[in-house]
Simulated assay, not measured.
Amino acid sequence: MEYVTAHGARIPALGFGVFRMSDAEVEAVVPAALEAGFRHFDTAQIYKNEAALGRALDAAGAKRDELFLTTKVWVDKYAKGQFAASVDESLDKLGVDKVDLLLLHWPGDSVPVPEQVALINEVQAAGKTRFIGVSNQNVSQLRESARVSPAPIVTNQVELHPYIDQSRLAQAAQELGIAITAYYGMADGAVPKDEALQKIGAQYGKTAAQVALRWLVQQGYIALSKTARPARVAENFDIFDFTLSPADMQIIAGLSRPDGRIVDPKGLAPDWAA
């Protein structure tokens, strides 16, 4: 496993995400993920499967001190009292006394970013998370979060795959010492079917999916992989025994396009150009 370090947080560069997975799928696949080598697990309140993840990790005998657990607070909890109570509920479902990383899930358009940041800092000060971060923030929001937060913002979790150019955001994050965590790395199923990525993978004896994950990790990003099929878990983890050439990295970066963004919910997403 490779690691990404940001403001004292040492985060496994490859994580296992459980977005859009049922309780049954989570409980079936997590043992395979642990066996493959995954120790970084990413969930969220809105996924409705925190409890399933907690049960699966416990049933598999996972050692808490070997895990890096991330969850996210949903936008309807961005209020005094509600925020902390929702985190308590998440911890209870996960079966832990604190998570390793707590994120603000979306910036939304009703609660100012400084107020959100103040709430998550209160939770960290109360010892309920080791580190804090944000998700789906644009450049200006990320700069504002870093400026007003008493505790360091360690990551911004955003959509990132070969078809979207996030270089401007990545540059700002680097200047702030903030890690980028990539979700939707498979571009909702487009990556495994991509002929250019398949061709690159053939040179290394790897799949298109493995190439895309390696491309993310090789740039210093934290990549979240996901599969509900236990048989596919080992493939997702098997990306640390090869290095993409500079030419291949450039080819993959060249796949980005203006309409590459997939996730852009109204009322939750910011102005991405800001």
Rank of each mutant, 00 (worst) to 15 (best):
G177P: 14
V134Y: 02
N136R: 04
N156G: 07
I180C: 09
V139L: 14
R168E: 15
A126P: 05
Q137T: 04
Q171S: 13
V154F: 02
V158Y: 04
G177A: 13
I153H: 05
K128Q: 06
Y163G: 05
G185M: 11
S135N: 07
G185A: 13
R143G: 00
Q141E: 15
F131V: 00
Q166R: 15
G127N: 11
S135L: 08
G133C: 09
V139F: 13
Q171G: 07
E175K: 14
I178G: 01
S149K: 11
L169M: 14
A182V: 08
I153F: 09
G127R: 10
G185E: 00
I178K: 03
A173I: 00
N138R: 14
S145Y: 03
P152Q: 06
Q171E: 15
P150R: 05
L176S: 12
G177E: 14
L142M: 13
S149Q: 07
A179Q: 05
A173R: 02
Q141K: 10
Q141G: 14
A173E: 15
M186D: 12
R143L: 03
R130K: 13
G189A: 11
A126I: 01
A170F: 00
G185T: 11
D188G: 02
G177V: 12
A179Y: 05
Q137H: 13
A146T: 01
A126F: 08
Q166L: 09
L169K: 04
G127L: 10
L160F: 06
V154R: 01
R130A: 15
Q166H: 09
Y183G: 07
G133V: 06
V134G: 02
A125E: 14
A179S: 14
A187C: 05
A182I: 04
I178T: 08
L160R: 06
